[in-house]
Structures are given as structure tokens and as C-alpha cells.
Write a protein that binds this DNA or RNA. Structure first.
Lengths: 340, 340
DNA sequence: CCCGTTCCCGGGAACGGTCCCGAAAAAGTA
DNA sequence: TACTTTTTCGGGACCGTTCCCGGGAACGGG
């Protein structure tokens, strides 16, 4: 049990050669005698030599890793987008380092410093729910570290952005509900400083306007996706003097919990209240009634963001790019009040 | 836009002092004049100086980070255990580096090398579904790198292990089904080289034996948690000449999908078939009928594993520890055939 | 006034690699 | 045989820190 890790120098000493030669052999360069090369490699394997990435990265001035800052991995949207990021990174042989902001501005700032200190080659960011100023990103971006924002983007910084058509899809979802005869459509929206939430609300409002349906503030619930007040919101809605005939929920989990509470109160879905989710989780297919939802392309957004970032890393003077990944409305029974 | 990152040497040059002094100021040591210290710190902030963690770690011979190898973050059990790990790491100011094996032995091996090369101070591992040999872990462990296995543990290596009482809880779950009058209990189990799966099957068998119920091979389905053959399995079970009267599923998602298919086939739950899940996902409360399940303490297991690992890092000659975190049977309507 | 102590600070080795440069040895060429 | 070219290898600077060691200045006590 040798406490110290074996280094290139140890191998050199044991073989009576210089560390330059060992380095040459191990990094697979050609200007070395085949025989000495195999001798070195054999000894290295025998000693379980592991190259010190710290030293290599320090010398090379790059780490071959991309840093990721997301709110939470427990959130399936972000877990899936990390999947897309990983896929692309694996393809080009890069590592990824994931940090969670836990929806906190301070933690996000700490994550950022930590990743910059670790000298990641680039950054993939989806900002936290709390983040409504961008002073922490600016100096990093101006230092020339490539970064691309995805989903929860940051328009204040002239970096590449990957987003989905929140406005259009919220519009489409709302119009679908209207087409099913709904007129009193409740909606749940997130913090309005988030680009995503803002556009979803805009899409909802635009759909009402186009159909000459009055906007009722009482039907707009400001919350966030991990709220634990779903029970409270649901009771509020179903106890309203004029009960809504549809709910456009903030995500599928919320939608499913709401449906559960409504059903227990004797409300029929979709006949009394139609329910539309967001994210198109697998689970939605197995509840009763099956949940209509918005397919939010998490994996593709992560992959696209990673692709763009890698391009920026390889070609530092590329112009920033804005990439739209389309969402899709998935209609199931929870919103189908009319048989077509 | 200065392409190169600012270093301690730059600051030293600009202030006409030595880099030793700058280092002293920035690392907050005391043997420095207060005035020079503030001058240095001010300039550092103004230049957006970020310490180079690579250099620091190389010099200090430690990285202050713990490496984590898990099968998948998309699996909520592991996502939650990462949460527990993060919590403890944050408390002691350590970083965590997460790698996914994607249930592949080769990827797990690569992750291991990559983390060792990055010189993490210790390793937290839950082995992949494919892994049935441990030759890759042995040399690393013998090198003296602290590691602790959790949930999917590895008994072949004399490292600390954190696990749950799979045998007992599978026994308890099965006995619960029996107590509800079930006699033909189907069970879904994972790869038998996994400690967890093996013990769950053992617990199931033991419960049958104690209650003098014959074991039917046709009711034991060998699969894994992310199988996409749930539809097939379900049809197989309900089309059996002698249909089972209970299913002990491999996890809640599977259980919920099975219930959905069964209900579409006109099978009543739990009257015709009782369904017991595993993992106690939130979602289980909102399906119809609410799903009985096993509360698998993911967060606590992650936290315990991290705690133990940090102890090993701080006190290298600590003896390996085996820690049991208890599971809990959660009874809801999907298994309640008799009113108590 | 002298000497020991304390307070600050600079020099330089070290961490573990890479890589440039030059030199010795081997091989090719006339 | 003598010269050139190629092959193979060693020396040493460097990446950005930390930290040990030693030295000079200020200071206090006798």
C-alpha cells in the first residue's frame, strides 16, 4: 500500500531514462523507439499508473471539460437536458462538471466562481429561479470564457442562447382549450423575470385576446414548479364563485396532483374542468384521464446547447447564435371535451 | 478583453511585490501587513482574479472534491441520493463530481479512471447493473483512495458500505400481501449479481416459505428497473392460466404502468390483483388507487455514505463501516383488500 | 547602545506533467 | 570514409500556486 501516487518520474527512475521519454511513450507520440515505448507502457500498467489530470490541465491551459450550472437534477427537465449534454460531450471526448444552484442566486454565483476557478473550457447555464440580475455572469463572459444559456436564458448577455417557443406553445395550448369550449381558463405561471415564464404568460394572454375572452386576474396563479401549495391553489380554484373550466398547469406533476384533488371533490375531468400539463412526463399517460401536455424538448435543448458551446470553444471568434427548439402540444383525454 | 486569465504573478508585478506576498494576502494568512493585504485584495477584485484551482490542487496534493459514480441521474433514486451527498459536502465545504455509468461496466471503468486521474479525495459508488466483477475497483482501493459503496454495494471489497434492509423489507412487503389474502404473488426482480436484487428475491421467497406458499417460477420475472417491456410482462401475467392475485413490482413507475394496463383490461385493483411498488415516489399518491410502496431512503443513504467517506478522508486509517438505513413499508389502497 | 525578538517580505523549490531544443547515436549517402 | 539525415533521447523551462527558509527593518529591554 504505497500512499503516494506513482508519477512519470518514478517510472523514469526505475527504467533509468528521462521523464521526457516516459511522457512521450505514455502520451503516444511517435518520436520514440518502439521497444522502450512498450517497456514503459508495461511498467506503467504494472504500477497502475494514472496520469495526473491536474498537472496536464495546468500545463495545457485547458481542461477538456464543460461546466454546467442548472437549478436541480431532481427536476426531470434538467436531468434530461443533462442527458443531452452528456451525449454530445461523450461524442467529442469532453468531460462535464455539473453544479446545482438549488434555485438560489448565491449558490449560482458560487458555482460560477468554482467552475471558473476549475478552468472549465466553457459554460452551459440555465439560470436559477431567484436570479434577476446578471452581474455575476458579465465579467466571466467578458473574460472570453465561452458560455451558452439554455431554456432559462439570459438576454442581457450577448452569448448564445438555446430556447423553446414558449410564447407560441402557450398560445397553442390555450387555443386548444378554447377550441374545446373552455372560457374560464386558469393558468399557473412562474416568476416573471424568467424569460420562459414571461413568454408563457404572454402566449396565454394573446390567445385569450384573439378569442375575445376577458382576462381574469383571479385565474392567474403566480407560483413556481416545486411549490408545495398545490393543494391550496386547487381548493382556491374550485371554490371560486365562478369556477374555471380549464387549468393550464405549470407542469405535469402539479397537473396530476390537481386532478387527484379535483376528482376527490367530485369534479369530472375534462367535462367540468379540463387540465393541461407541461413537460410531457411519461407518467401522464398512466393517470386517469391521461394527461394532455406540452412536450418540452429537454434532451434536444441540452444537446444543442452543448454542440454550440463546443463550437465556441473550438472557434473562439464565432458569433453568438440563437437556437430555437420547438415544443409540441400532446393532446390526450384530460382536455378532450368534444369528440372530433 | 484579455484572453489570458490573471494570475498571482500579474498582481505581484503590478504592485511591485513578490508573488509570495500576494499568495499570503489572498489565502488569508496573518504574516502580512494589513495595508499591503488590502491593496492586494482590492487589485485582485478589480482584475476579477480567480485562483487557479488546478495549480492549488496540484500543489496541495488534494482536491477537496469527492467523486461520485452512479448509474443514472434520470433515475430518481440516484438523483435523490445525490441530493443527500451534496447536502453533506456543502456542509463541510467540499465539491462533488458526478459521473454516470449509464448502467455500463465499461463506462463505469472509464469514470473510475477519470476520477482517479482528477485526483478526487475519495469515491462514492453505486455499481452499474452490468457490473459483475470488481477488478477495476481493487487496485484503486489498494492504492489507499477512500471509497464507500452505497445501495448497489460491492461486498468483494473491504470498503465501507451503506445499504438498506432489502431482505427484510421484501419479506415484510410480501407478508403484507399475504396478509391481504394473496397467494399467487408475482414478483419482478433485477439482475441477481446485484446485492440489492438478490436480497429482495430472498426476502420474497422466505415470506412464501414461512407461509407455506409454493414458489412458482412462472411468477418470478427477471428484468431491470428501466425495462421497456412492462406492457409485455403485464400481458403475460394477466393471461396466465392461473392469474396472479398480486404483483410486487420493481419500482413505482413500473407498478403504475402495470396498473394502467390492468385497469384497461377490466381488472380491478386491489380486488383482483393487488399491486405493490418500490421507491415511494410522490406520484404514487395521486394514481387510482393510490399505490402502496416501499420507502427507499435515497437521500439518507447518500448523506450517510458522504459522511462516512469524509471521515475516511480525514482519518485515513479508520476501519471500514457497514451502515444500515432502514426502508419502510407504505400501505395505501392498491394492496388493501381487507378493511382492518 | 547593543542584541534578541517580532513583523514583513522575497527567493526559490516543489507539485506532475508537456514540449521545445539540442545532442548523441544510428542510419543513409556519396 | 566522411558527411548528412533521421531517429531517439535528455535537459530544462514552464503552467500557477504554496510554503519553507532566511533576511532586513523596526522595536523593545537591559
Amino acid at each position: 500500500m504505497d500512499k503516494k501516487a506513482v508519477t512519470i518520474k518514478d517510472i523514469a527512475r526505475m527504467l533509468n531514462i528521462s521523464k521526457s521519454t516516459v511522457s512521450r511513450a505514455l502520451s503516444g507520440r511517435s518520436d520514440i523507439h518502439p521497444e522502450t515505448k512498450t517497456r514503459i507502457i508495461q511498467l506503467a500498467e504494472q504500477l497502475n499508473y494514472e496520469p495526473n489530470t491536474l498537472a496536464i490541465n495546468l500545463k495545457q491551459q485547458k481542461t477538456n471539460t464543460i461546466g454546467v450550472i442548472i437549478p436541480e437534477t431532481i427536476n426531470r427537465f434538467f436531468a434530461r437536458s443533462v442527458g443531452g449534454i452528456q451525449k454530445i460531450a461523450d461524442m467529442v471526448g469532453m468531460n462535464v462538471m455539473i453544479c446545482q444552484s438549488n434555485e438560489s442566486y448565491m449558490a449560482e454565483k458560487n458555482n460560477l466562481h468554482s467552475l471558473v476557478s476549475s478552468r472549465v473550457d466553457g459554460l452551459l447555464i440555465s439560470i436559477s429561479r431567484e436570479t434577476d440580475r446578471y452581474d455575476h455572469f458579465k465579467p466571466v463572459f467578458e473574460k472570453g470564457i465561452p458560455m451558452v444559456f439554455f431554456d432559462r436564458i439570459c438576454e442581457d448577455i450577448n452569448a448564445s442562447q438555446v430556447f423553446t417557443d414558449n410564447f407560441e406553445i402557450a398560445f397553442e395550448g390555450t387555443e386548444h382549450l378554447i377550441s374545446q369550449g373552455c372560457r374560464r381558463i386558469a393558468v399557473m405561471v412562474g416568476q416573471q423575470h424568467l424569460h420562459t415564464s414571461r413568454n408563457r404568460l404572454r402566449g396565454y394572454l394573446e390567445a385569450l385576446k384573439r378569442n375575445n375572452i376577458p382576462v381574469l386576474e383571479s385565474l392567474i396563479i403566480h407560483t413556481h414548479y416545486s411549490s408545495n401549495k398545490i393543494d391550496e391553489y386547487t381548493r382556491y380554484l374550485i371554490n371560486l364563485p365562478q369556477r374555471p373550466d380549464a387549468v393550464f398547469a405549470i407542469n405535469d406533476y402539479t397537473a396530476i396532483e390537481m386532478m387527484h384533488i379535483m376528482k376527490k371533490s367530485g369534479i369530472r375531468i375534462p367535462e367540468d374542468i379540463a387540465v393541461l400539463g407541461f413537460n410531457n412526463e411519461n407518467m401522464g399517460r398512466f393517470v386517469d384521464p391521461p394527461l394532455s401536455s406540452i412536450d418540452h424538448p429537454a434532451h434536444d435543448m441540452g444537446a444543442a446547447a452543448a454542440e454550440i458551446l463546443i463550437n465556441h470553444i473550438r472557434h473562439p471568434d464565432l458569433k453568438p447564435e440563437n437556437r430555437l427548439i420547438k415544443s409540441k402540444l400532446i393532446i390526450r383525454e384530460s382536455t378532450l371535451r368534444k369528440n372530433p
